[in-house]
């Protein structure tokens, strides 16, 4: 854990770095399954982004607690993957139940993408990164949230572009997923332009 005290501007840096410079989808290339799967229409993309923001902001701190107060204490860090996936799965299940009870329209809008967050490697990846970067609790919460926002940003950009594909003349061999992957790569390249933003 970092011992020096983080100022407010440090947190701003962390947020910008998580959203733009080290965007979880476009630079780290984690969570590409929903990136291609849910980016065909804008409304599903927005719902998916919101669901990921919600789940990640909650599971980030919880896995941090599990790591520091259970796994490290008993010297069994090697079952980290198992423990984290269990936590994420349980949490997604819980969120699903709560949403189903509180807001059935939202539950219907999210559909299959809500349970699919369980296997979204962007969520698991961020939890692992929290540990690897030796963040403290506050940093973990901020990083988890902004990482999910970065996920949402990339997904919404992608959905905006893919909605346009309906009106573009794409050669037959490049249609659908192929052009999706090419576009993902090009957006990723353009996001490299943010590299010089923060040291």
């Amino acid at each position: 854990m970092h011992n020096e005290v983080w100022t407010f501007s440090d947190y701003i840096m962390l947020v910008i770095s998580a959203i733009f410079i080290n965007n979880i989808l476009l630079i780290r290339f984690l969570g590409n399954c929903p990136f291609l799967g849910t980016s065909k229409r804008m409304d599903t993309a927005v719902s998916m982004s919101l669901a990921v923001v919600f789940v990640l902001t909650c599971t980030g701190p919880i896995t941090w607690f599990i790591q520091h107060y259970l796994l490290e204490k008993y010297d069994i860090v090697y079952i980290q993957t198992l423990a984290f996936i269990l936590t994420i799965a349980v949490f997604v299940q819980l969120v699903e139940m709560v949403i189903k009870k509180i807001s059935p329209p939202l539950y219907r809008a999210l559909g299959i993408y809500l349970p699919l967050i369980t296997t979204n490697c962007a969520v698991f990846g961020t939890c692992i990164l929290n540990i690897r970067e030796k963040f403290n609790l506050m940093q973990t919460i901020v990083f988890s949230f902004s990482s999910a926002v970065g996920f949402g940003l990339a997904l919404v950009i992608m959905a905006g572009l893919r909605e346009r594909f309906n009106f573009a003349r794409i050669p037959k061999n490049f249609q659908d997923t192929s052009i999706g992957l090419i576009t993902a790569g090009l957006i990723g390249l353009s996001f490299y332009a943010f590299q010089g933003l923060v040291k």
Binding site: I66, L71, I76, I79, L82, L94, V98
Partner: peptide, 27 residues
């Protein structure tokens, strides 16, 4: 023993949590 205890413990806690939640949020 430790991994079994920790994972088992986590599983029991989570199972209880989900069990209660499924009662509370039953539709």
């Amino acid at each position: 023993i430790y991994p079994i205890m920790v994972m088992g413990g986590l599983a029991v806690v989570f199972a209880l949590m989900l069990g209660i939640a499924s009662r509370v949020f039953y539709v």
